[in-house]
Design a protein around this nucleic acid. Sequence first.
RNA 1: GCCGGCGUGGCGAAAUGGCAGACGCGACAGACUCAAAAUCUGUUUAUCGCAAGGUAGUGGGGGUUCAAGUCCCUUCGCCGGCACCA
Length: 818
Amino acid sequence: MISNEPLMIFDPLQHEVLIQNRWMSEGVFRAPFAREMTPETPTFYMLVMLPYPSGRIHMGHVRNYTLGDVVARYQRMQGKKVMHTMGWDSFGLPAENAAIQNRIHPAVWTRKNIADMKKQIHRLGISYDWDRELASFEPDYYRWNQWFFLQMWKRGDVFRALRNVNWCEALGTVLANEQVVDGKDERTGHAVIQKPMEQYFFAITKYADELVSGLESLDWPENIKAMQRHWIGRSEGVRFSFKLNTGEQIQVFTTRMDTLFGVSFLALSPEHPVIQEASQMDHELEDFCQTISKQSREERLTTDVKLGHRTKLQVRHPVTDELIPVFAANYVLMDYGTGAVMGVPGHDERDHEFASNYNIPIPIVIDSISPWEPGILINSGEFNGLTSEVASNALIKLLANSANAERMLSFKLKDWGLSRQRYWGTPIPTVHCPKCGVVPESEDSLPILLPEDIEFSGRGASPLTTSENFLKATCPNCGTDARRETDTMDTFVDSSWYWLRYLDSKNQTEPFAIEEAKVWTPVDLYIGGVEHATMHLIYARYFQKVLRDLGMAHTDEPFQRLICQGMVLKDGFKMSKSKGNIVDPDEVIEKYGSDALRLFMIFAAPIEKEIDWIGFEGIEGAARFLKRVDRLSSEHSPTHMDLPPLTSLSLDEKKLLNKVHQTLHRMTDDLEVRYSFNTLVSSLMELLNTIQEHRFDSINATAIRQHVWDVFVRLLAPMAPHLAEHLWTRLGHSGFVALAPWPPIIHELLIAEEVLVVVQVNGKVRARLILPADITDEDKHTVALQCEEIQPWLRDKTIVKVIVPPGGKIVSVVVKDI
RNA sequence: GCCGGCGUGGCGAAAUGGCAGACGCGACAGACUCAAAAUCUGUUUAUCGCAAGGUAGUGGGGGUUCAAGUCCCUUCGCCGGCACCA
């Protein structure tokens, strides 16, 4: 050891990089493969959401990665092997837009952005295993998207169907929802219409029920679970048919079978086949359907005026045999339920509104508190007097044969449309054969590579259609010349399994080895933005279930615990380039160091809340704290002496050690159970204040101080790892604090010698007593009643009762006037 | 409209039914300094009081409890999600 160097005061700008380099060169954060570990080795998988490489990291990233790093570093100090990695969600629209605007190839643009962001993330000192880094735009990654697609095709999980897309006639291209503003292309202002196009789908609705029930077992925030439940929208109901006068049947879906006698019309979606057929002989109906079809989905959903058109069709009520008119109505959606609704205006708000507009009778058939609630049936023939539930069951039974009534589950969740008419994505591995139709590629032809000879004009069909070489293919079935599929995959496919690729990112023969997944998954903790609460987190859960059924996963759910962190704002607004209110992390690091930035991010607010970046005062506070730690600990000269026997300690010394171990206990709980991060910092600040107040100079002082700082520095290490590393060395330790064991709690030091007991009279605090910690509850009772401070409050009163909660810190006396 | 969450000092916040405001920021005062910065010390919910101390207080109202920021009911406000889902 060089005598002067270890006592050096820490200079973030100078020392942080050196420490980062040491971590890197020694491979401190390398995660082992399952095959390198014994089965008993404890592991922890700490995952943060895969970032899009936009070019610069922002404070939201800093917050996310710092919080993840706190957990990763803590778990490592607990002796676990930790999987903590970083990668790039590097396909998607922005790269393609950059290509159109700046004539730069998406791959070049993306590579540069990744390099820039990586440099920034390095400066934060996050403990990633960079050997496992991945980027979804590399053929090495996306070939496995294609491979999964083929496996899913085999299982019948992929299908093709028509669905509306945003079509811009002027550009001859499909646009993403975010590119369409007010029914126009955001960039050029050309009109956008809805046009049905044939596309690929993953049959996610097959798993809809499991995606709802699976939420139960997850340790996720309630609001996220609620969002997912809502999104999937499971509802139990009945499907049955009404007969048209032509003999044809119209199936409806209802959750209120009990209101059957209140049906006074049928409402069908304008896209319903029965309406489509009828409109061929009814020009007014055709016009109506035309009008509605021009509305975008958004328009249709936001108009509160319900539009309808009375058709010439009528159906028979399945029980009463009455004639019921059939309407086409804009408020009925073809893609939910059966696309047809039995109109019960007496007991459904929307039907009521519609019926009022079109002078349809409004029969009342349920007696209940509110017209929309279940109750007792009235005006319902032989069913009168039954409860809604009993009547529903009876009606289903009655109509089982005559109207094919059966129970049915319905979901709001739609199948996952994964086709994108774009270049910068995973090519879908199929060909269009004139003889065999759409045929999947063979596995050994993968990867289907993105071609380089592409023109980016922003108009016309997918850029892939401009590559002659790419289009040329042979049918894997019959060998005839075929045209290669030009659709690429939704980028949500990339992010639906990446945490498994991290486990085995260099594997050339399979997406990952199952043995690795068995050891490392499910992910123990996943941290990311709340904006991914539904889409990404549902798609990822779906993929996990598919993988399980392919025999490639051993759990039903991918992410056991989830935390969604709040955004980082500036003056109440989201930081964004257009608002010019971005605070660049680099700027902060250059001024205060990354430890200070990290500490502030942890301390500023509870993880799930927003942080408003008002100014740099918060950061300065964090930097000030770190400087105090550095200075105060530098007053101590390291020693190898052990902690003296506890019996030889003075009260003052015990108090300090007490605080140390109470802090340790609390912080361990915050990290292990509560996942409360801001309180970690305040606990540590409190401890520093206590250390500063206890500057005793006794025989045991040096040995005690060594213990105090040994613990303190390790508690600091997950949050401010650079300074902690520096101090660890200065305390005379070799090796990295990052790999040092989390300090063990000395239980004798957890219990204070003295405790504060509060005496309340009628709920008001009247005395504070310092009593020996081992006092019995009986003695507490006695001492409390005798203490001087409460006597005035007992004068002229009768003591009704005295409550001493077992082991508590309070004595509650209840009195009343004599 | 429905679902979920949140309302605590000047500000960010803490408090596992048991001392509300820990910890930090800011502010004010003092020490050091020729001065400033940095650092250190103290004060900082309101209100009454010279003080000791009292009283009120966690959006509003009500309740349960010896004890409520915390649990229950109700009401207002803010944020997020979904939005004709039959």
